[in-house]
Amino acid sequence: MEDKQILEQFRIAETRTAAFNALVKKYQQKIYWHIRKMVIDHDDADDLTQEVFIKVWHNLGEFRAEAQLYTWLYRIASNECLNFLSKKKRASLTSIDDVVANELSQKLDEGVLISGDEIQIKLQKALLRLPDKQRLVFNMKYYDELTYQEISEITGTSEGALKASYHLAVKKIEEYLISN
């Protein structure tokens, strides 16, 4: 179902639930994987994915299609991820970012619902060493292959800054991979 059709049907009370189901089916995987790459743990990703769609349910009526629907969804999901990680850092009772990064890194080592060879795990660990916002941008560019323009719409950051951020992230990741 096209986005336009989903939005039209969502505005009608009788077809609202059906339209929302269509929206979830269409975008759930994109949103889940975007979140999962940020929070690593499946259960956390599951909670956040549901939170995102519940938020969408409550706010889709006000969505005026100025932006693409998927960029709006990505925006909500990104926000949820950053808030979640921020809360996690606060809950760790320390200002050191490494604590959360190490915790997530440990989850990679535990290997629950994780596959992949050594280099892939190492790449994920390198990503965890990046600041969350930079990691978010990296994931959208590298894995989701979104354009800088799309990422710019999602994050509200200029394309130039995104390019620079991505370029530096790649450098840092490669440095990590060489030195580890």
């Binding site: 938020k55 706010n59 709006w72 925006r75 909500i76 990104s78 926000n79 950053l82 808030n83 390198a126 060493r129 990046l130 600041p131 969350d132 916002k133 930079q134 978010l136 941008v137 999602i154 994050t155 509200g156 950051t157 200029s158 130039g160 800054a161 995104l162 620079a164 951020s165 530096l168 992230a169 450098k171 840092k172 990741i173 440095e175 990590y176």
Partner: peptide
Amino acid sequence: VDPIDISDEDILNAAEGI
């Protein structure tokens, strides 16, 4: 929804790295 609020400065400062 809540603004995501990643400014240019923010993202470049975040690029301090590993």
